[in-house]
């Protein structure tokens, strides 16, 4: 009988092997920005409880180019997260039916984008419209 010696290939560096994996890792890395931003916002809430001076010092610090760049990156990450999240959402939610007709994944994705734009417009309107 022939010898059996099954060979297992190593996984190290797997995410560099395929553009699909690379994009997946980019998707996952948005979490770093989401986390850092949330901590940053938490700190902002904290300054509100301390008082006006603390809040204004915080706002002034955010004007530093490092923070502006950070927030620009965080915005890009949040947008990438939103895009990828809406696209995979149909895979995670139960299949939807209208009567006996299955609602297509593409419709589900589109509806989310519409909601996203409406909600974002409302938030920006309320916050920046004065």
């Amino acid at each position: 009988m022939a010898t059996r010696r099954p060979y297992m290939r190593p996984m190290a560096g797997w995410w560099r092997r395929n553009p699909f994996y690379l994009f997946y890792m980019l998707r996952e890395s948005t979490a770093v920005f989401v986390t850092l931003y949330a901590l940053q916002l938490l700190y902002g809430v904290y300054t509100l409880t301390v008082g006006q001076a603390a809040f204004e010092a915080w706002l002034a610090r955010l004007q530093h180019p490092v923070y502006i760049v950070f927030h620009a990156l965080a915005l890009a990450a949040a947008l990438l997260h939103a895009f990828t999240w809406f696209n995979v959402a149909p895979k995670a939610m139960p299949a939807l039916y209208l009567g006996t007709r299955r609602v297509s994944d593409r419709t589900v994705v589109r509806v989310q984008f519409v909601i996203f734009f409406v909600v974002s417009a409302i938030m920006l309107g309320v916050a920046l419209g004065g």
């Binding site: 965080a74 949040a78 947008l79 997260h81 939103a82 999240w85 809406f86 996203f116 974002s120 916050a127």
Partner: peptide
Amino acid sequence: AAFLLPAVILI
């Protein structure tokens, strides 16, 4: 994060 964060970060 998907629905709210982009606008919140922008603000």
